[in-house]
Simulated scan of single mutants.
Amino acid sequence: MQAVWVNGIPTDQIKVTDRGFCYGDGVFETIAVVDGRPQLLSQHLNRMRSSLERLGFPEAIESVIESDLALLSFQGDQTLKLIVTRGNGFRGYMPPQEVSATRVMTLTDRVINYDRADQGVVTRLCDYRLPLNPVLAQLKHLNRLDQIMARNEWHDPNIAEGIMLDAEGFLIEGTMSNLFWFNSVAGELQTPLIDRCGVKGVMRDHIISLSHREGVRVVEGRFAPSVLSEASEAFICNSLIGIWPIVALDHNHYKIGSITRKLQSILARELD
């Protein structure tokens, strides 16, 4: 089942002149609904607010989005997607001086893949590299061509995710997830620094906060792929999948370790 609202009205139609359609001029958030409750909703709205501000959208849009959400009735396990574009425009890249944003909400049923959370997943390194662009780094903007190019590299259903490097060869993220690993030599949880490209995931930041709370040291930095050979465990995460342990990444193989299981357990309790 899928329900769609555009600017607070039940419809699945937008104008072909919408700048989100024409240029990818906008942002989006994808939110898990568990037992009728949107998870980490305030964090998602805060990221959307920050993203819209960086793209120069007017502040008044924020209150309208919250009014749109009040129209929804959540039931069971669903996926809520929020999209905000700069609205309709004429030809050319120059944004309109007065923005009349387009707001799209979709609500769909969600099937949770418990096997991947329990048994772990196989991943691979992608050949396609993310270009460096600090201005758009961290944002969940509508231009996902980098991720599409990387995801098109494999069609093996046994491979759940591809890990992407930046233009300089440093680890960044998965095509649809963020990446963590436990470095047994340094005794710390490590994750790529998202300051020049990539998406600063809501679940990523939540896991960092949980780890600090549980006394697990987390280091964000620029890491070459070779560091993964020193990892005793690794996992990917996002707001829909939670945490999926990695059991293989190309020639590296991992056991599902205690740090991963502990974080999964805490998330299950918090988000249940």
Rank of each mutant, 00 (worst) to 15 (best):
R116G: 15
R116L: 11
A117M: 12
D118C: 01
Q119R: 12
Q119S: 11
G120F: 01
G120M: 02
G120S: 07
G120I: 00
G120Q: 00
V121P: 01
V121T: 05
V121L: 01
V122N: 12
V122M: 09
V122Y: 01
R124Y: 12
R124V: 12
R124S: 15
L125C: 14
C126Q: 14
C126P: 08
D127E: 13
Y128V: 05
Y128H: 15
R129L: 08
L130S: 14
L130P: 03
L130D: 09
P131M: 04
L132V: 10
N133D: 11
N133V: 00
P134N: 07
L136G: 07
L136V: 09
A137M: 07
Q138V: 11
Q138I: 02
L139E: 03
K140R: 03
K140Q: 05
K140W: 01
K140S: 02
K140T: 09
H141T: 04
H141M: 04
L142G: 12
L142Y: 06
N143Y: 09
R144H: 11
L145E: 14
Q147A: 09
Q147W: 08
M149Y: 10
M149I: 15
M149L: 15
R151A: 15
R151F: 09
R151P: 11
R151S: 15
N152A: 12
E153V: 05
E153H: 08
E153G: 07
W154K: 13
W154P: 06
W154L: 10
W154G: 09
W154T: 10
D156T: 07
N158Q: 13
N158K: 09
N158H: 10
N158F: 05
N158P: 03
N158M: 11
I159A: 13
I159H: 05
A160H: 00
A160Y: 04
A160T: 10
E161S: 03
E161C: 04
G162W: 01
G162F: 00
G162M: 01
I163V: 15
I163S: 01
M164P: 06
M164Y: 03
M164R: 03
L165F: 02
D166Q: 05
D166F: 02
D166E: 07
A167W: 04
A167H: 14
A167Y: 06
E168G: 11
E168N: 14
G169L: 08
F170P: 05
F170I: 02
L171C: 03
I172S: 04
E173D: 14
E173H: 05
E173L: 06
G174S: 11
T175R: 04
S177A: 08
S177P: 07
N178G: 06
L179V: 10
